[in-house]
């Protein structure tokens, strides 16, 4: 594999030295482009108290192409599907090379605080979120308790 670009080295150093509150991103021992990520569920959201594992991969042409990010912990969220794939504009057409791992993870954390059922990836979840928000939030809390706590 080609040498690690300075950009990735710099970003990794900064992530280690000044970590974002509520987010940890640690590069894999064997692959510096692969990050083990843990995002804590934001306060006053149904995900509060949960620890969500994600994986983040920087493709060969990063930062010209967006990082690939996926939830590993099961989560009940209208913009995150069964496979943990995330519907977030900056990971797709709104990606800009000026964005960073840090900004991406912050956006994901913000997505947990503000689900957007009008732009759904998990249709059944989004549907419930729209017709019966309190039940959807109850489900999200239940899933958080079941899958994102104590393990």
């Amino acid at each position: 594999m080609a040498a690690l670009p300075r950009r990735i080295i710099k970003e990794t150093q900064r992530l280690m030295q000044e970590p974002v509150p509520g987010i940890s991103a640690v590069p894999d021992d064997s692959n510096a482009r692969y990050f083990h990520v843990i995002v804590t569920g934001p306060e006053d959201s149904p995900f509060e108290g949960g620890l969500f594992k994600l994986e983040l991969f920087l493709p060969e042409d990063y930062p010209m192409s967006a990082p690939k990010v996926r939830f590993i912990t099961k989560i009940y969220h209208p913009n995150i599907d069964r496979l943990g794939r995330i519907c977030l504009d900056i990971l797709k057409d709104k990606w800009s090379p000026a964005l960073q791992i840090r900004t991406v993870l912050l956006s994901i954390q913000a997505l947990l605080s503000a689900p957007n059922p009008d732009d759904p990836l998990a249709n059944d979840v989004a549907e419930l979120w729209k017709v019966n928000e309190s039940e959807a939030i109850r489900n999200a809390k239940e899933w958080t308790r079941r899958y994102a706590m104590d393990n």
Binding site: D61, M64, S65, K94, S96, P97, A98, L99, T103
Partner: peptide, 29 residues
């Protein structure tokens, strides 16, 4: 942005089939 980054940006965009719609690299620009 530096010359090399512009070049790389255009290369990646063109390889994705984007041409007249390539925009500046800055966020939300």
């Amino acid at each position: 942005f530096c010359k090399d980054c512009w070049t790389m940006h255009f290369e990646v965009q063109v390889n994705q089939g984007i041409s007249t719609a390539i925009s500046c690299m800055a966020r939300d620009c």
